[in-house]
Design a protein around this nucleic acid. Sequence first.
DNA 1: AATTAATTGACAGTATACTCACTATATGGC
DNA 2: GCCATATAGTGAGTATACTGTCAATTAATT
Lengths: 170, 170
Amino acid sequence: MPNSKPTPVTMDAVYTAPGYLFRRMQQIAVALFIEECKAFDLTPVQYAALVAISTHPGIDATRLSAVIAFDRSTLGNVIERLEVKEFVVRKPAPEDKRVKLLYLTKAGAAVLSDIMPSVDKAQARMLQPLKPADRKTLLSLLTQLVDLNNEASRVPLRAEDALEHLGRSG
Amino acid sequence: MPNSKPTPVTMDAVYTAPGYLFRRMQQIAVALFIEECKAFDLTPVQYAALVAISTHPGIDATRLSAVIAFDRSTLGNVIERLEVKEFVVRKPAPEDKRVKLLYLTKAGAAVLSDIMPSVDKAQARMLQPLKPADRKTLLSLLTQLVDLNNEASRVPLRAEDALEHLGRSG
DNA sequence: AATTAATTGACAGTATACTCACTATATGGC
DNA sequence: GCCATATAGTGAGTATACTGTCAATTAATT
C-alpha cells in the first residue's frame, strides 16, 4: 500500500537549510558591524570600497566592482555616498573619456585608519561564541566554499582585475 | 627605534574577514536559489514565508516576522507580493481589529510542494564543492553560531512566538 | 471608568543587490 | 576611414533589510 499522506512541511526545512543560515549570519554580521562602527557612519560595503580604493588608488568603478565582488549598478550609489561624505573623489581618466578614476581623500584615508580597530572588534565578535579551534575550522571552510562557488554568484570576485588599471598610466 | 611606517592596508583585511565571507555566501546562496527555482518565480524570503504560513496557518505578520527572523516592515512588502501572486490571503482577525491573519491559497500550497525539489537542489549545490564530512562540520558550526548570535541581530529568531496565535481561537 | 502603555500594520526614508536598457566612448577588423 | 563590437557609467525597476514614525486598537494600571 503506497503512503497516501504527503510529507508535512516543517520549519526545519527552513532552519536547517544552509541558505537560511547564511542569510542569518549576514544579518548578524551587518548588525555587529554597524553597532561597533556607528561612530564612523560607514556601512560594511562602504568600508570594503574604501579599503579597495586605498589598495588600488586610481581604480575605476567597473574594476572596483570586480575586486570586492560587488554589483556595478549598486556600486555607483555606494561611491556617490562616499563622495558626499568626502571620503572619495572621482577624477576623469585622461586617456579614456568614459572612465572616472577613484581616489581616497585625506579624510577618507583618516577614517579608514581610524575605523580599523572597530572593524576588527566586530569581526571578532561574530565568531566569539565559538571555541577558538572551531573559529579556525569555520573560517577555513567558509574561505574554501566562497572560493569554490565563486562563479555561482552573479558578480564573481576577480581580484586580478585590480591590476589592469596599472596598464593605463604605465 | 619605533617602527615609523604605518601598517599598509591590504585587501586581505577584507577577504579574510568573516563578515565579508558571509556576505559572499549570501550572494551565492541567493543566486543558486533563483537559478534552480526560476520556474516558480519565488525568492528565498518568499519561500521561507510560505513555509512558515503553511506550518502556522492563521499566523499574523508580526509573529511571522519573529518565526523567520525577518524585519516587520520588509515583511509587509513580501506578503503583499505573495498576495498579488495569489499564494497567500489576509483575513481580518475577528477578535482583534488590528490583526490580519495569513493563510495559504490552494495555489500557494501547490507551489510550495512543487518547488521543494528545486529548493533542495539549490541547498545541496551551495555545499557541493566541500567534502561530505566538511559539509557536516560547516553546517554544525553555522547552526551553532547563528543560535549563539541570535540576540545580536536586529530581528532575533523567536520560533516559540509562532504558538501564540493558537491562543486566539482556542 | 479613564488614562497610560503596548501592540499592529502601514508608511516614509536609507542602503544594499540585482535586472535590463541606454548613451558615450573605444577598439577591432576591413 | 568605417563599421560592428565591446566597454564605462548611468538610470529605471524590483526585492530585500533596516530605521523611524504614525493612527488605530487593545491591554494594563490606577
